[in-house]
């Protein structure tokens, strides 16, 4: 279970520490407040426990700075400076918290020159299943993408290749238990079918036949992706799910299913981090969550130029709430238009 993540002079952050809920962490904030960066840093750090890659190399591939110069991930300043991020997790097997830190200066060009510290060795000894779902759908483009990506001549953040790998490489561990089956059933009802793959190509299979992913609405592809990750056992107790803007290309009706699944995954022991700009997502969580669910809303905002965070487990206490404020701003403009300057 991830306990906290800390940033110092890293990408958009001057200094930020985020305590994480063991359940669902929902990040909201205006564009440019670093929501996706938090997810990417968390994901890179979890992924290396399975891929056994260097944290610096993985971070560089996931963030993909210009010219792959890792030093560009240090928060910009004219002077020389050092930045870092560190993640702390609790490992129940050894009843211990482990911390790993990646430090670099803005002059560090190659990942090999970056410094990895903390309980690095132990960190790698305890594998942690993790998955990062990017904003853009990749399932329809899976055929051939992996081999092309491995040639390293295409400019894509590694999360795009990784999500395809997760879907293909995951293996079903024994018979599907009843709780997992329940989730698959919910998704099957919403998608009206199940997912099969043939030669790296995905299809939605139902009574009408097999429909290739390229012909499916993107929203249905997202449900299909979830179905695959649950079916192949990637999303299990102890897994980490990072999902960047689940609402992208999803109609509000399907969002209800996605939130239902996410809450259920959390009940199964999956730790979730997601970003959103969407009112319906926030309200769905507020309305569907039970008192026993572990849910924290993290609001990222700029205060005198620097990014700060306010976290709460109560929807009504989210402040600042950039999503609600947007509606508020619209209402203010309507009032101004309707009431001229009366009352001012």
């Amino acid at each position: 279970m991830l306990e906290k993540i800390k940033f110092e002079k890293f990408t958009a952050f001057e200094s930020l520490e985020i305590p994480l809920s063991s359940g669902i962490n929902i990040f909201i904030g205006a564009n440019g407040t670093g929501k996706t960066h938090i997810l990417k840093a968390v994901y890179a750090t979890c992924d290396i426990t399975k891929s056994q890659k260097s944290l610096a190399e993985k971070t560089n591939r996931v963030f993909l700075p210009f010219g792959e110069q890792i030093g560009r991930l240090v928060k910009r300043a004219r002077a020389s400076r050092t930045g870092y991020f560190e993640l702390t997790r609790r490992v129940e097997d050894i009843d211990k918290s482990l911390t790993i830190r990646l430090s670099l200066t803005n002059h560090t060009k190659e990942p090999e020159k970056a410094t990895i510290s903390g309980t690095h060795k132990q960190w790698l000894q305890h594998p942690l299943e993790s998955v990062y779902i990017p904003v853009k759908d990749m399932m329809a483009n899976a055929p051939g993408f992996r081999s092309l990506y491995n040639l390293r001549n295409i400019h894509f953040e590694e999360v795009y290749a990784d999500i395809i790998d997760r879907v293909f490489l995951g293996s079903l561990r024994g018979p599907t238990d009843s709780r997992r089956k329940k989730l698959l059933d919910i998704l099957q009802r919403s998608m009206d079918g199940k997912i099969i793959s043939k030669n790296e190509e995905f299809f939605l299979k139902n009574k009408q036949g097999e429909l290739e992913f390229t012909l499916l609405a993107e929203g249905i592809r997202k449900l299909g992706l979830l179905w695959l990750l649950i079916q192949n056992g990637i999303l299990l107790n102890g897994s980490i799910l990072c999902w960047d803007e689940p609402e992208a290309n999803l109609n509000p009706k399907l969002m209800r299913t996605v939130v239902e699944i996410l809450l259920e995954l959390q009940r199964l022991g999956v730790q979730i981090l997601l970003t959103t700009h969407d009112y319906v997502v926030l309200k769905e969580f507020d309305l569907q969550a039970k008192n026993t669910d572990k849910l924290v809303f993290h609001s990222l905002y700029r205060n005198t130029g620097e990014i700060e965070i306010a976290s709460t487990d109560n929807y009504l206490n989210i402040a600042p709430n950039v999503i609600d404020d947007t509606f508020g701003d619209i209402v203010d403009r309507e009032i101004k238009k309707s009431m001229a300057n009366l009352g001012k």
């Binding site: 209402v331 309707s338 009431m339």
Partner: peptide
Amino acid sequence: RSCVVVNIERWNRNFPNW
């Protein structure tokens, strides 16, 4: 002439004299 629906927060923000 016009019609506006407001909550407490929006009222106070838009009508400081009331």
